[in-house]
Design a protein around this nucleic acid. Structure first.
Ligand code: DCP
Ligand code: MG
Ligand code: MG
Length: 733
DNA sequence: CATGAGCGCGCC
DNA sequence: AAAGGGCGCGCTCATG
């Protein structure tokens, strides 16, 4: 994608205007030009021509093409602008009992939030390829600052209906949402329905976007999906067009309708050509979570902006000191720059260390924290790590976090993508709430504070993937695995591993932090970490003075404790190599062909040539079913929590892979009741995936004033009984 | 100068 | 370092 050249006679005055601080914006189909009078007038002289570039529009041939696609699909566009007509056609659609209705919405920014969208140009006066989608332009995607203008629905009949929601009320078309629906990125539409129309779809909702991901291992846009599946070359210019115009153009209406048509076509292809029964089952689990996720996104995460500001100020102060220390330690080179740091390493490393120092993919010396921590006796490295850590916090969790807060709700509305990961885990974006600092920056999550009268409740599965692998091993060997027996006995395997690694005598001597550090050991070893990497991890983070021999011994001892796991790893991995894929309990597959290499690009003498070209990988083979089945547990858990808590004043506000975060009323009776329900649902979810699993200590509710300040529900109830208020609340002041 | 790959790093 | 896996995001630096 490159920037679009404007005609020469436009470029010059435009550049002058922009240099003088002027700006060009679009407001609907109008072009606004401001800046110093003379310069602005020079551009205004060409306003008509400029509009052709900056106002989204389709060319005549593209419009004709969209029309022809609709014709080929057998759908003519019928725009509905009256309530009575809307009721009539919706009744008709429902009476025809369609197998599915393709559905799509176009949204318009609410008048109160409508503002001109500034056009971005390059310094040379060309139109920038990437126009900003945040700020004013992003308002159209925000359910709190925009509303649905068009509802497009195609049930496979001769008309694709386009309802103009300025003239039609939600009540007029409500029965539509009792039909099975096929939607691309369904959470977006369902959010609108819940928030704006107070309607929740009662029929099956199919998300045709995540379905592509499930079977093709790629995640295209709707237009790309149309191209991949049917060779359609859909113009995308109108996606960002002005849906708030009084009268929409026929091209806009066609374009809008086409998306609904595409949704139904994709659904048909997926259900009838691509999916087998297992794919359908997987998709059903993921789709069931759509309403829960829609509500979760609408709720959003509350942020204590004042507390956050204090946190940032602290970081800046510390950074200042850390930078001074670094400058003292390395007066000549700025080690924050990779090249300078690498030069420094060449100076201070002995030949032996240098030759074994890990390299980046492009052959340079790595500068990653783990490697430098192992060598932090060398000059300036410890100082550098401190600077880097603070810089990271400031850059990733500083002002940018505040910028992401919604101006209407004053909360953080992260997007959660159901099965956004290959394994089926959620992905999160637009301030990824799943990566907020925790262990390394104790207390940061206190900025996520419940509003007055409410509390944060969090439920995180205990040792979830260890419990999952315990079940998979048991199924494979046909008898209770060692891990399953451990969990039935109430043991904590992370603690046990920490004890072993630290050479401690008693479990009680293992600290919380040591337990945290043992997690990567357990999961690393389960997912086929080698001796060297294991040794490096231990040295950098855990047991800094350990020898390689001792690390090898610890690793061997781990497998000696769990011989059935070693057997499962080898046998199951070999099995998936033959099978061509590895899969979760519900049947989500990771196909080796998705990472296969072209034989022509691989040297035949290369070791493990066969695996390289087939795409097989033993670590993926064992990780995918464990991580992925655990993700299915969480999908089910959210679905169940959302249903079970419907009668309560509780809101799900986030999920972090094996954790659900809620807001609940701040009174002991509610907390106790909601905690019990939530715990019960999460246990039930785990059992849906792993029916034979022990449930002792599986998940415990935690409560507190903030996400960073939680204690077990039991303790909280005791304290609230005596103190009569929220424990910890006073310490916040 | 705008763009994208590479890298590193936050979390689970 | 033939192997822990899964993400998203911010910065830098080479590329055109
Ligand atoms: N370095 C890590 C950390 C986590 N995980 C996976 C396995 C964990 O089971 C899961 C959830 O992470 P948690 O931090 O919740 O860890 P556990 O559930 O295992 O332990 P806890 O009992 O503390 O919740 O994520 C992983 O693969 N590698
Ligand atoms: Mg957990
Ligand atoms: Mg967790």
């Amino acid at each position: 994608m490159t920037s679009t050249e404007l005609p020469r006679h436009l470029r010059k005055p435009l550049r002058d205007l922009l240099d003088a601080g002027g700006r060009v914006a679009r407001d609907g189909s109008d072009v606004l030009i401001d800046g110093p009078t003379g310069l602005a007038d020079a551009v205004r002289a060409h306003a008509g021509q400029l509009a052709q570039y900056v106002v989204p529009a389709v060319r005549a041939d593209e419009a004709a093409f969209v029309r022809s696609l609709l014709t080929d699909a057998g759908a003519s566009v019928a725009t509905i602008t009256s309530p009575s007509e809307a009721r009539r056609v919706v009744t008709e659609i429902c009476a025809s009992n369609p197998d599915v209705v393709g559905l799509d919405f176009e949204t318009e920014v609410l008048p109160a939030y409508r503002q001109p969208i500034t056009i971005k140009f390059t310094k040379g006066g060309s139109l920038a390829a990437r126009q900003p989608r945040d700020g004013a332009a992003g308002a159209a995607l925000d359910p709190y600052r925009s509303k649905v203008r068009l509802v497009q629905a195609w049930a496979g009949g001769e008309h694709c209906f386009v309802f103009d929601m300025r003239m039609v009320a939600w009540a007029d078309i409500a029965p539509l949402f009792d039909m099975p629906l096929a939607i691309f990125n369904a959470v977006f539409e369902v959010k609108r329905l819940i928030h704006e129309a107070h309607i929740e779809p009662t029929g099956r909702v199919y998300d045709v976007m995540t379905a592509v991901w499930l079977t093709n291992g790629c995640r295209p846009s709707l237009a790309e999906a149309g191209r991949i599946n049917y060779g359609f070359d859909i113009p995308k210019a109108l996606g960002a067009s002005d849906w708030s115009a009084e009268a929409l153009t026929p091209e806009q209406l066609d374009y809008a309708a086409l998306d609904a048509v595409l949704c139904r076509l994709l659904w048909d292809t997926q259900q009838n050509e691509v999916f087998d029964d297992i794919d359908k089952q997987c998709q059903e689990v993921a789709d069931a979570a759509i309403p829960a996720v829609a509500r979760m996104e609408l709720h959003g995460m509350p942020v204590d902006v004042a507390a956050h500001r204090v946190q940032i100020a602290h970081w800046h102060t510390e950074l200042e000191a850390a930078q001074n220390a670094l400058r003292t330690a390395s007066p000549l080179r700025d080690l924050r720059k990779a090249a300078a740091l690498q030069a420094h390493l060449y100076d201070v490393l002995d030949a032996e260390t240098l030759s074994t120092w890990p390299r980046t993919n492009s052959g340079l010396l790595t500068t990653r924290r783990q490697q430098m921590a192992i060598n932090n006796h060398l000059p300036a490295l410890a100082e550098l790590l401190r600077v880097r850590a603070l810089q990271k916090l400031i850059n990733s969790f500083g002002d940018s976090l505040i910028d992401a807060i919604n101006p209407v709700t004053e909360r953080l509305h992260t997007s959660f993508l159901i099965a956004g990961a290959r394994t089926g885990r959620f992905a999160a974006r637009e301030k990824n709430l799943q990566q907020m600092p925790k262990r390394r920056q104790a207390g940061f999550r206190k900025i996520f504070a419940a509003p007055e009268g409410q509390l944060v409740m969090a439920l995180d599965y205990s040792q979830i993937e260890l419990r999952a692998v315990a079940e998979l091993i048991s199924d494979w060997i046909g008898t209770d695995s060692i891990l399953r027996r451990s969990f039935a006995a109430g043991l904590d395997v992370h603690t046990a591993t920490a004890k072993s690694m630290m050479g401690k005598n008693r479990l009680e001597d293992v600290t919380d932090d040591e337990r945290q550090l043992a997690k990567p050991c357990n999961f690393g070893l389960i997912y086929r970490m080698g001796n060297t990497t294991f040794y490096h991890y231990l040295r950098a983070d855990f047991v800094s003075d350990i020898t390689f021999e001792k690390a090898c011994e610890l690793r061997a001892r781990f497998f000696a404790c769990y011989p059935d796991m070693a057997r499962w790893q080898n046998e199951y991995a070999r099995h998936t190599r033959e099978q061509g894929y590895t899969q979760t309990v519900a049947g989500r597959r990771w196909r080796w062909e998705w990472r296969a290499q072209n034989p022509e690009d691989v040297d035949e003498d290369e070791p493990f040539y066969d695996d390289t070209i087939s795409g097989f990988n033993g670590a993926y083979a064992v990780n995918h079913p464990v991580q992925g089945s655990s993700a299915e547990v969480m999908q089910i858990a959210l679905t169940r929590l959302d249903r079970a808590l419907r009668g309560e004043r509780a809101q799900i506000i986030a999920t972090v892979h094996d954790e659900a975060v809620l807001l609940v009323p701040d009174d002991p009776a509610s907390v106790e009741r909601i905690g019990a329900i939530a715990q019960q649902e999460m246990i039930a979810a785990f059992l849906e995936v792993f029916p034979a699993a022990p449930t002792l200590n599986l998940v415990e509710p935690k409560v507190g004033p903030t996400w960073g300040d939680l204690q077990s529900l039991q303790k909280w109830l005791q304290n609230s009984g005596t103190a009569g208020g929220t424990p910890g609340a006073t310490s916040e002041l």
